[in-house]
């Protein structure tokens, strides 16, 4: 496959960036999107140019490190992470626009790398259970109803990639925060801190400058892990009852 790429290049947080055009050839349709970028970077390095910076880690769709907006869609045209997006979803000769996650709370570090520590600070404000650490407790010591366990697992799937923020027209982190709050609040272990958790996490989310939810549903469409939009309704309910 031969492709034309238009990639956002930006030297540093305070320098202006722009879309820069590159041509890559000999791309196999079995390559992942990141492998395609690796191919481009190898060429750039051989030419003595600065390679395109992008975040990546596990490359098997579970860590949440990678993420870029491809043709206006977070993680590209398939509902998966960028590392699991294969080039067979593109046509030979395509022009592909690649941009970083865009949000006030996600400043660009370089090229396609953004600082997502705002999400970590939301977690830090309540996305945990304050309990004595030590050896793992006996698994059956606390009975968890099947329905609650399923719901918690569904929301615990969130890998914190930030695609929801990138896809939302308001740059809102509601789906992320919903996933983290619901995951813990529906479990008996999370119950004692249920009210303070949701209040603190929503407060932290607002303080980071994320937008509000206008229920457009773009987040849930983009989420590679399928966190449901109704999770946000559950977050709202938790917040209002606190």
């Amino acid at each position: 496959m031969n492709l034309t790429l238009r990639i956002w290049r930006q030297q540093g947080p305070d320098t202006p960036g722009e879309m820069t055009e590159y041509r890559v050839s000999g791309i196999s349709e079995d390559m992942s999107f990141l492998e395609m970028l690796d191919t481009l970077n190898e060429e750039l390095i051989l030419r003595g140019d600065r390679p395109v910076a992008f975040d990546h880690d596990c490359r098997e769709g579970i860590c949440g490190a990678c993420g870029m907006v491809i043709n206006g869609q977070a993680h590209g045209p398939e509902r998966t992470t960028t590392c699991q997006l294969h080039m067979r979803h593109f046509e030979d000769g395509d022009t592909i626009d690649v941009e970083p996650w865009r949000a006030g709370a996600f400043p660009v570090v370089r090229d396609l790398v953004v600082d997502r520590s705002a999400l970590d600070r939301i977690i830090g404000s309540g996305g945990y259970i304050t309990a004595p650490t030590g050896s793992a407790p006996e698994a059956h010591a606390t009975a968890v109803p099947k329905e609650a366990a399923d719901l918690a697992f569904e929301h615990a799937e969130c890998i914190g990639c930030g695609a929801c923020v990138a896809a939302c027209p308001n740059g809102s982190a509601m789906l992320f925060t919903a996933a983290k709050v619901v995951h813990l609040n529906v479990l008996p272990q999370g119950a004692p801190e249920r009210a303070s958790r949701v209040r603190n996490m929503v407060g932290a989310m607002d303080a980071e400058g994320f937008g509000g939810c206008t229920n457009t549903g773009e987040c849930a469409t983009a989420c590679p892990k399928g966190i449901p939009l109704t999770g946000i309704a559950r977050l709202n309910r938790e917040f209002l009852r606190s």
Binding site: R6, R102, A103, G104, G211
Partner: peptide
């Protein structure tokens, strides 16, 4: 909401 997305996508 508008402030939360200072730079639009190209």
């Amino acid at each position: 909401d508008l402030k939360a997305r200072p730079q639009q996508y190209v």
